[in-house]
Design a protein around this nucleic acid. Structure first.
Lengths: 190, 190
DNA sequence: ACTTAAACGGAGTCCGATTCACCTTATGGA
DNA sequence: TCCATAAGGTGAATCGGACTCCGTTTAAGT
C-alpha cells in the first residue's frame, strides 16, 4: 500500500508537520481540537483530512510511533537484565510512555480497550513485546505460566487512562502489584 | 439538599423513569444519546435536563446506584468468609458489576480515572469498601500492608473500560493476578 | 374552582468533527 | 525552459449531538 506512488514533496512535509504538531498539541493540553492541530502545523483542516481519515486516525498514527519505540526495548532489556527484572523494567517503561501519551485522551484508551481493526497493529505489537518478556521469565522459572501478553496489556490499560492528580505514583504501585502477582505463581503453582 | 422541598409527584415519577430508561439504554447499546433516553422515559430532553445538569450527571447517578449496592457487600462477605477470601470474592463481584455498567462507556471510566468532584462520592465509597477488606486481610496477616483501596480501585478501572470481545475472561484473570499480588507481600515482606 | 410555583416540551443554539467544490503547485516530458 | 495535469491544499458549509430557553401545562394548597 505505501508503494502505490511516492508522496509529493510538499505532501510529505505537511504530513510530518501534522504528526509533529499533533504530538506537541497532545502533550501540551489534553484533547486538542483538529483546528488547533492544523493551525500548529500551518495547514488547513482540509489538508489534515487529506492525510488522516479522522481525528482518531491521526491520534492512532502518533501513538503508533510511540509504541514502535517502546516495543523495540524488550530485546535490549533481555540482553541486559535477568528475565524477571526485564519484565519489571518494561512495566515501568510502559508507565513512562503512558505519561507521554496521557494527553491523547479517549482515543488512546480505545487502543487499549477495543477490538477496532484500526488499532490491531499497535495492540499486537505491545502484546508481542510482553509475550517475549513473559516467555523468557517462564523459561527461567521466574514468572507464572499461562498469562498472555494481551491480558497484562489490558490490565495496564487502566494506567493509561488515569488523569487524576497523583496518577503516576498510583500507576507505579499498580505495576509493582502486577509484577508481584505475575511472579507469585512461579514459586507456588504451575 | 434533598430536604429543600419534597419533589412534586410527576417530577419524582419522571426522574425515576429517566433513571430506569438510562440504565436500560446503557445496558442495551453502548453510549445511548440523550434524545434516545428521553424518548424511552416518555419525556422531552428539557425534562431530562431539569433533573440532570449534563448527560454525564445522569450517567453518574445511574452508576451511583450500582455502586451503592456493590459497596454494601464487604460487611456481608467478611461475616461469611476469611478476609482474603472476602477480598477475592469482592474483586470478582467488581467484575460482575463492571459487566452491568459496561454500556455506560466513557463517563464510567471518568469515574474511575479522574478527580472530578462530581464523582468523589462513588469513588470514595468504593475505596472505603476496599479499605475495609484490605484492613481485615492485613490484620489477619493474609494481605500485604501499605496498599490503599484507592490504588486497587484504579488498577481495576481498566477492567471497566474494556469493550473487546473476550473482555470478561481477561478481567477475571486480571482480578486474580491483582489478588495474588496483594497476598504476595504478606508472606515475604511488609 | 382558583392561584401559582413547579415542571414540561421541543424548536433552536452552540460547538466541534468532517466534507466538498474549487483553487494552487509539484513534477515530468516536449 | 515551459506546459499539462494530476496531486495536493483550502476553508466555508454541513452534520451530529449535547445543551438552552421560554412559552405552555399541571400538581397541589386554599
Amino acid at each position: 500500500m505505501p508503494s502505490s506512488r511516492p508522496l509529493r514533496a510538499d505532501a510529505r512535509r505537511n504530513r510530518e508537520a501534522l504528526l509533529a504538531a499533533a504530538r506537541e498539541a497532545f502533550l501540551a493540553d489534553d484533547d486538542a481540537h483538529v483546528e488547533e492541530i492544523a493551525r500548529r502545523a500551518d495547514v488547513a483542516v482540509g489538508t489534515l483530512y487529506r492525510h488522516f481519515a479522522t481525528r482518531e486516525a491521526l491520534v492512532a498514527e502518533v501513538y503508533r510511533q510511540e509504541v514502535a519505540e517502546l516495543c523495540a526495548s524488550p530485546a535490549r532489556l533481555l540482553a541486559q537484565y535477568a528475565p524477571d527484572e526485564a519484565l519489571r523494567t518494561f512495566l515501568l517503561l510502559l508507565v513512562e510512555h503512558a505519561a507521554v501519551g496521557r494527553g491523547m485522551g479517549e482515543a488512546l484508551e480505545s487502543i487499549m480497550a477495543t477490538d477496532s481493526p484500526v488499532f490491531d497493529d499497535a495492540r499486537d505489537e505491545m502484546a508481542r513485546a510482553l509475550d517475549e518478556l513473559l516467555a523468557a521469565g517462564v523459561a527461567a522459572g521466574l514468572v507464572r505460566s499461562g498469562i498472555s501478553g494481551r491480558v497484562v496489556l489490558r490490565a495496564l490499560g487502566g494506567i493509561c487512562g488515569m488523569r487524576a492528580k497523583g496518577w503516576k505514583d498510583d500507576a507505579l504501585r499498580i505495576a509493582t502489584i502486577l509484577y508481584d502477582g505475575l511472579r507469585y505463581g512461579a514459586a507456588n503453582h504451575g
